[in-house]
């Protein structure tokens, strides 16, 4: 019966759409500014470590003395399994590679995979969560079922399986590693976003949008998205930390990035196992340490954000009030006479 000839084409808003869509982020910023105590410490320490990690990764070619696959320089091969010294601060590996350079380049790889994985899972998870939460019904049932099934797998196993599948398609590079990790994280975004979309869908402002004649796509983009997205930054930072670990796990099992493609901490750790027995501590210590610090940084950042943004954890600051001396009001008593028409006098 729904027949109409009136045009109801999509209308793309242009004015300050970005400002409004990310209006929710404004609250995040102000919450961060108000943070105090332990959450503040966690937040800023985490942010500092994470920033250090990102800088190292981005400027790796400038910081590292050699490239990750350089084994000779100035016509000389590097020493094999050389202990740390003036030229190779962190020593060299059995393949004559410079440990310092590989550790620094490892940060680059980790960052690339992390960013890609988070972006992929963010886009897919948020989109699917919004759709499932807003439309409900069969779409929601099926998506929830699939996501729960994914959740049920041990995450490393899932990543390994996904790694096998994707390596057949896109080779053994950064993108494959990122995609394998993405599969693990999509359900997390999906769950959180679907839950907040479900509650936002019941909000009066969503109904008001419907009453205005907005189409579902418009409602989702303009009314749900901005309100749902606020729960995402916390998971994103937590996932970032986790992604580094998962990538290393894959690398350690030899399933991650091929050693010829990039330097990877997990792979280096795997190669260093034999060295430990031989008393060589440097090949495993530095990549391992780098990994721990990077994960610690993002975890602190995530936990700090969670404490600051989660209203149930937030506490209002109390400032003590000192009451100044009280001056009692004077009292004027009217003589007990009848017919006092002061009520009229005021008019």
């Amino acid at each position: 019966m729904a027949t109409t000839t009136l045009p109801t084409g999509p209308i793309e808003p242009t004015v300050s759409a970005a400002a409004s869509r990310f209006g929710g982020l404004r609250r995040i910023v102000s919450a961060i500014r108000e943070a105090r105590g332990v959450p503040k410490f966690m937040l800023w320490t985490g942010a500092a470590i994470s920033a250090l990690f990102v800088i190292t990764a981005v400027f790796a070619p400038l910081i590292a003395p050699y490239s990750f696959d350089t084994y000779r320089s100035g016509g000389h091969n590097f020493p094999k399994q050389g202990s740390p010294d003036g030229t190779h601060w962190f020593g060299t590996t059995v393949q004559s590679l410079d440990v310092l350079s590989r550790t620094i380049y490892g940060a680059r790889t980790a960052l690339e995979v992390m960013v890609l994985a988070v972006i992929f899972s963010l886009i897919l998870g948020v989109l699917l969560g919004l759709l499932a939460g807003y439309f409900g019904g069969w779409l929601d049932r099926i998506l929830v079922l699939v996501m729960d099934a994914l959740f049920a797998f041990p995450y490393l196993l899932l990543a390994i399986v996904a790694g096998f599948v994707f390596s057949g398609i896109s080779g053994g590079g950064v993108v494959t590693a990122a995609l394998s990790i993405t599969v693990v994280y999509i359900p997390q975004y999906f769950r959180v976003v679907r839950a907040s979309a479900l509650s936002a869908r019941e909000a009066t402002f969503v109904e008001a949008a419907r009453a205005m004649g907005a189409k579902p796509s418009v409602v989702i983009r303009k009314y749900l998205f901005g309100n749902v997205i606020q729960s995402v930054p916390v998971i994103t930072t937590m996932n970032a930390a986790d992604a580094i670990g998962t990538l290393a796990g894959l690398g350690f099992l030899g399933l991650g990035i091929q050693p010829t493609e990039a330097a990877e901490w997990g792979y280096d750790l795997d190669r260093a196992i034999d060295d430990v027995n031989a008393g060589m501590w440097w090949t495993c210590l530095y990549p391992g340490l780098a990994m721990v610090i990077a994960i610690l940084g993002f975890t602190l950042l995530g936990e700090g954000l969670n404490d600051v943004l989660n209203p149930t954890m937030r506490r209002r600051r109390i400032s003590k009030v000192l009451l100044p001396a009280h001056t009692r009001r004077r009292t004027v008593t009217a003589p007990a006479l009848p017919d006092v028409p002061e009520g009229e006098a005021a008019k």
């Binding site: 409004s20 869509r21 402002f205």
Partner: peptide, 14 residues
Amino acid sequence: SLNPAMDIRTAVGH
């Protein structure tokens, strides 16, 4: 009934 993440300019004119 107003979207908390939308400014008045966008909300009123939507």
